[in-house]
């Protein structure tokens, strides 16, 4: 239960990074989204329920065979989301190879022009 909870949170953080979150600076080095009115934290209504699965193998580098699990969701979800968006664009006929994270609606729109 704890590991699943860690994965849920990690996935949400990764999706946040992929779609919403980014520190934006202006040309003078001033942070332009310094509060939650501008910096977008993902909310409950941005997500579906998650299904998790795991492939369990012992770690060969320590006597207990244990591994950290907290970051796993965070590592996998940004490329998964970005690739899903790119795949959707390709199937719509837009041959876009990369969009810089976060994939804001304007960035995706621009990539389609």
């Amino acid at each position: 239960m704890i590991v699943e909870g860690q994965i849920h949170g990690g996935v949400a953080q990764g999706v946040g990074q992929a779609l919403f979150e980014g520190a934006e600076y202006d040309e003078n080095g001033q942070l332009t989204n310094a509060s939650y009115m501008d910096y977008c934290m993902p909310r409950a209504d941005d997500f579906p329920m998650f299904e998790t699965g795991s492939q369990v193998t012992p770690c060969p580098h320590n006597p207990l065979g244990v591994k950290g699990a907290g970051e796993a969701g965070t590592i996998g979800s940004p490329p998964a989301v970005v690739n899903a968006v790119l795949d959707a664009l390709w199937s719509g006929g837009h041959k876009v190879k990369d969009i810089r994270m976060p994939l804001t609606s304007e960035r995706v729109w621009r990539a389609m022009q």
Binding site: H8, G9, G10, Q13, R43, A44, D45, F47
Partner: peptide
């Protein structure tokens, strides 16, 4: 419903759980 719960919680941020277990 799940959707109504998520909508009701739109003004509450959680950085840890991904909201799954909160729902």
């Amino acid at each position: 419903s799940e959707e109504q719960i998520r909508a009701a919680l739109e003004g509450n941020f959680c950085r840890c759980t991904g909201y799954h277990n909160i729902v």
